[in-house]
Amino acid sequence: MKNPDNDKEKEAKKAAMKTLRAQRKDLIASASSRMKTQKKDIKAIKEFLKGKKATIPDIAEGIDMPKDETLWYIATMKKYGQIVEAEKEGAFFNYSLNEPEKTQEKEEV
C-alpha cells in the first residue's frame, strides 16, 4: 500500500529541486555546456585510440585538439581508469584504451 507521507515528501523534494534549479540556472547552463564539450572530446579520444596506441602529439593532431588539452584529458582519463600508459617512443609515451574499462563502459551505456 502507498504511504501518503512518502508521496508528500517526494512532491516537496521535487518542488525544492525545481526552485534550486531556477536559482542556479546560469551555473547549471555553463556546467552543462562544459560537460557536453568534454563528453565530445573524450569520445573523440576514445574513437582515435580504438585498437591502437598513440602519443600526445599524435592524438592531438588526429583529433585536432591542442596538445596541452589532450594531455589534460589523457591524465584525467588515466586517473579514472579509462586509459593506460604504453611504451615510450622517443621522448613521448604512448597511451591506449584500458580494455576492461571499455567493456565496463559498454555495459553502462
Partner: peptide, 16 residues
C-alpha cells in the same frame, strides 16, 4: 601526481 612521471605539461614530452 597528475602524470605519475615527469612530463612537460604542454605536450607530454619527457623534458631534457
Amino acid at each position: 601526481g597528475p602524470y605519475n612521471r615527469v612530463l612537460r605539461p604542454s605536450d607530454g614530452m619527457e623534458p631534457d
